[in-house]
């Protein structure tokens, strides 16, 4: 009993110097990780990093401007939250945004059919709306890794332009998920 009375190791969380060098409480993420969009020129087009790690927030992108915008800003085209990508059209907004996917190898031409906008939840097991770009990834149930399908999305923006857009990756250099890297070129 005496042994047990003295037996107690200090709290592990207090002994760890967390990665940023500060003893940050690991479970207290405050208002959540920073969410932002960083757009820069990429050849004749654009490259954006979209930080969509906060599941409570949408992070929006205006392809026409181009820049990150608040979701309530008129003219936004795509918005991101975790792995969900929603478009400003259909049930989501009145921007008329719709998308179609061209698998890798297909000719980069504007199809007349196959355009999809955000729609109500269809006949599947979930209750999430059927977003226009909900099929953007392949899921590995063994590693839980989401990988973008190889190919190009054509996105008809609120400005009426059709942008060829590619989802380059979903993870940042530190291995964090929901940090999209996107590229898109001049309108077709």
């Amino acid at each position: 009993m005496i042994l047990l009375a003295f037996a107690c190791a200090p709290d592990l969380a207090d002994r760890i110097v967390w990665d940023d060098g500060e003893p940050t409480p690991p479970l207290d993420t405050g208002s959540g990780p920073p969410t932002s969009v960083d757009v820069s020129p990429d050849g004749a087009g654009w490259r954006a990093t979209v930080d969509a790690r906060d599941p409570e927030l949408w992070v929006a992108l205006d392809l026409d401007v181009p820049s990150g915008v608040l979701p309530e800003t008129p003219g936004w085209d795509l918005r991101f939250s975790r792995f969900d990508i929603s478009a400003n059209g259909g049930i989501t907004g009145d921007g008329g945004v719709e998308a179609v996917f061209l698998p890798e190898g297909d000719e980069l031409a504007v199809p007349t059919q196959g355009w999809i906008s955000d729609a109500p939840d269809g006949e599947d097991d979930g209750d999430t709306p059927d977003y226009a770009m909900s099929t953007w990834y392949a899921y590995d149930s063994e590693t839980h890794v989401l990988t973008p399908h190889p190919g190009t999305w054509l996105v008809r923006s609120t400005g009426g332009a059709i942008f060829p857009l590619q989802i380059v990756r979903y993870y940042d250099d530190a291995g964090s998920s929901a940090v999209f890297e996107l590229t898109w070129g001049e309108p077709l």
């Binding site: 990665d19 690991p26 993420t29 291995g175």
Partner: peptide
């Protein structure tokens, strides 16, 4: 009997995947 298991994961370069359980 008494057993305590403190477990933590500290992601390098980020704290998205940090975990702590007691």
């Amino acid at each position: 009997g008494w057993y305590r298991d403190q477990f933590a994961l500290d992601q390098r370069g980020s704290k998205d995947l940090d975990q702590h359980s007691d």
